[in-house]
Amino acid sequence: MTQAISMRGVTKSFRGQQALVGIDWSVPTGCIYGLIGANGSGKTTLLRLALGLLWPDQGEISVLGQTLGNENAEVRQIVQYVASGRPFAVGFRVKEWIRYASLLYAEWDGSLCNKLLVALEINPQQHISDLSSGLQTSLQLAVAIAAHPRVLLLDEPTNGLDVVVKRQVLQFIIDMAAKWDTTIVMATHTIEDIERMADTVGILYRGRFIFQSELDAIKAHIHRLRVVIPQPLPQFLQHDPRILQVHHQGHITQVTVEGRLEPMAAAFRDAGAVLVEPVDMDLTEIFRVFLEKEGYSREALRWDAL
């Protein structure tokens, strides 16, 4: 499959401070990619590199098969970027900004844009600076969708949106992805947004990718069991490479395992476990396990600090 975005060995620093280090990243065409990381982990830098706005210190970036250079205006016809919470086009009314966009984009779909504005309840007569920040983000998104991009980069798109609008916005995004096979990258620090939507995820931590995989594959790969087993654990289980994490809570032991669930459960039963039951694990917990596996210190494992 062709790659929508592909980066090889990309490094970027600002005033001597490294923002991204040795990034190898590829986003397959047509997927919804969840890019996870806290503020300052390098998400925004990564997306702005993919847009050709920032230039890498080292490495090569190509978008839809086109290698990026210095002036990447053409690439931004087909790659759109929407970020929440920053001033934009304050000197324009909504309809004036729409007019500008209609001149700007080769594949502009005016009637779609009008429909989106109606659905999002944005008044075209209003000044953009008078819109709430949530509406400003929605407007950016409407413009981005109407420009018919082939890649859509979203930087915390649901920040500042109430639950109703948030759902609506996510539905627009999914509808677009399904209709045009648009590749979507969603950068966020709230995993809930992408748990349902993403099919591929990557975690950025301090300017590095520590994990990239398809979501189904992770789920099939990582499991957590709640077991009641006489202590201490039998030798073979203590040194089993499939066991990633063990937590004791009174009589109950929580074990996180890698690989298939059944053989592992059977092994515990054979070792004399009274109770063996699988426990639900959300992505947040799965990623925490991966961080620990990567050898990051415990202090760094607080998800908020990721």
């Binding site: 706005l53 053409e74 970027y81 086009a89 984009y105």
Partner: peptide
């Protein structure tokens, strides 16, 4: 007022 840096993020 014109948010030039924002405009430069577009395809101009």
């Amino acid at each position: 007022r014109g948010q030039l840096s924002f405009a430069l993020e577009g395809p101009i």
